[in-house]
């Protein structure tokens, strides 16, 4: 199924999504990589509030190339970064900040899929490396936080997205996780390939 979602208005529709569904998202997206995840958790521990509401936005694993032009930021390239690095922090970020849509690439592990299941949230992937194409759908930079402290790839950028996609649902609200299913399949194939190698001549 193909869905066009407006965020935050269509947040209640997420619980009906299934693994393999295709999404196009319009609305607010915030970027967060390793350092931003860590910072978000540190601020929570200190009892400090974030300057934005993550529960009303899409969390995007991305460190964009941005250009400062005529007093405005322009997004030049903004594809996803490898999501599995964020497995270290994502469960807590989901629980504390109520994030329900995560976008990245490469898949995420059980810890994250279990946390998403509890909040009826999803993880979807965008084509890795398709940075120029992704940037096309980020029409505006609404704000940037922690740029000085973290540097541009790790800072939290808030984008206004228009038809950001195609995104493919990789973890659905039931916790069904393509990453896990495909890994089991690849392990099976690996054994078959090893047998081929063992039985050849040299």
């Amino acid at each position: 199924m193909i869905y066009n979602l407006k965020i935050p208005d269509d947040l209640d529709k997420i619980s009906g999504l299934r693994m393999g569904d295709v999404l196009y998202i319009t609305g607010k997206v915030f970027t967060a990589r390793d350092e931003a995840h860590q910072l978000m958790l540190e601020l929570h521990e200190k009892g400090e509030k974030l300057p934005f509401d993550p529960s009303k936005m899409v969390l995007y694993h991305c460190g964009p190339v941005v250009k400062r032009e005529n007093n405005e930021w322009k997004v030049l390239a903004a594809g996803p970064t490898t999501s599995s690095r964020m497995d270290l922090f994502e469960k807590e970020v989901i629980e504390i900040y109520g994030v329900r849509i995560i976008v990245g690439k490469g898949g995420m592990g059980d810890r994250t899929s279990e946390a998403l299941k509890k909040v009826k949230g999803i993880y979807a992937t965008y084509t890795g490396g398709a940075g120029a194409l992704a940037a096309k759908s980020f029409k505006k930079v609404l704000s940037v936080y922690y740029l000085e402290e973290l540097g541009s790839p790790e800072a939290i950028w808030i984008f206004e997205a228009e038809n950001f996609g195609p995104l493919i649902v990789s973890i659905d609200p039931d916790g069904k996780n393509w990453n896990k299913l495909s890994r089991d399949e690849m392990e099976k194939r690996k054994k078959e390939i090893f047998e081929l190698i063992d039985h050849e001549g040299n």
Partner: peptide
Amino acid sequence: QLPICQDT
């Protein structure tokens, strides 16, 4: 003439 990928 844009970066192909944001990870340059």
